[in-house]
């Protein structure tokens, strides 16, 4: 069943990058050579041995913390909070999308109106407003991402649901006297997973960028938590003299996002091929 996916180079490369970061996040304590918060030696250049003979792979920042170790621990932050935020956004988007798509009529009109209102705000402005109002904390970042992504997910789910609900097997379930809840979650939901898996990967990447952006704007996780976006922000002022302060966090963010985008593309290609085949 998964074999066609594993034959796609896009899936392999993208999945490899994403999986790589996941492993880094899981095994952060084993991989990171130093404590990410400990001051060792300020502004050491990459690959240059320190005073006590330590090796700083990616150099150190102005507070003397090892950038490589901070990136490794930062992966954990990104992986945990992007996944969590995307999952909660999906929980709400799926629930309301299924309800609106299946019920139609007034329920759909009201829910879709609310979704459109949220979607009509520029995303970044929305994040900033939410974070400024409720404050920067891990939970609040999850809330902000959920609030601004759920409507987009809602729209996708609603569209697919309307299509799936019109098929005869849903009518068959209705005429068997199946409960609405079961029709939604057993008959309709499993038939939406193809397009949603693609969207999930893309969205996970966007969320990683978002968390990076929030960090960069100083609205992310409060310091000294290792956070890729925050690291770019902190290094910004001295980036011309010490480019390693920003280059490595930037590469980290883009490699993760790129990986997820490639994975999404690959999944879509395989899904499309499957659909054509059916």
């Amino acid at each position: 069943m998964f074999v066609p996916y594993l034959k796609k180079p896009l899936v392999l490369i993208g999945g490899g990058l994403a999986l790589g970061w996941l492993l880094v996040a899981i095994f952060a304590p084993l991989i990171a050579p130093y404590d990410p918060l400990q001051t060792l030696q300020p502004l050491a250049k990459p690959m240059v041995a320190g005073a006590k003979g330590e090796l700083f792979l990616f150099g150190t920042d102005m507070l003397g913390r090892d950038i490589f170790s901070r990136l490794v621990w930062g992966a954990r932050t990104v992986v945990i909070y992007s996944t969590l935020a995307t999952l909660t956004a999906y929980a709400f988007g799926l629930l309301f999308g299924l309800i609106a798509g299946y019920a139609g009529g007034r329920t759909d009109a009201v829910l879709s109106f609310l979704a459109n209102v949220v979607l009509s705000f520029p995303v970044l402005v929305l994040y900033i407003v939410i974070i400024v109002v409720i404050g920067a904390s891990p939970v609040n970042i999850v809330i902000a991402v959920t609030f601004s992504s759920a409507p987009a997910i809602y729209r996708i789910v609603r569209g697919i649901t309307i299509d799936v609900a019109s098929r005869d097997f849903v009518k068959a379930a209705v005429t068997q006297g199946e409960s609405t809840l079961r029709i939604l979650f057993v008959d309709i939901l499993p038939n939406t997973t193809g397009p949603l898996a693609v969207d999930f990967c893309l969205r996970l990447g966007y969320t990683a960028i978002t968390i990076g952006t929030l960090g960069f704007l100083g609205l992310g996780l409060p310091p000294p938590t290792p956070d890729w976006g925050g690291m770019v922000n902190e290094g910004r002022a001295m980036a011309i003299a010490f480019p390693h302060l920003v280059i490595f966090p930037c590469i980290a963010i883009s490699s993760l996002t790129l990986g997820l985008s490639l994975l999404a593309d690959g999944l879509r290609e395989v899904n499309d091929a499957k659909e054509r085949h059916a």
Partner: peptide, 8 residues
């Protein structure tokens, strides 16, 4: 083709 849920 439409009357049976492909996922079940």
């Amino acid at each position: 083709f439409g009357s049976l849920n492909p996922r079940r």
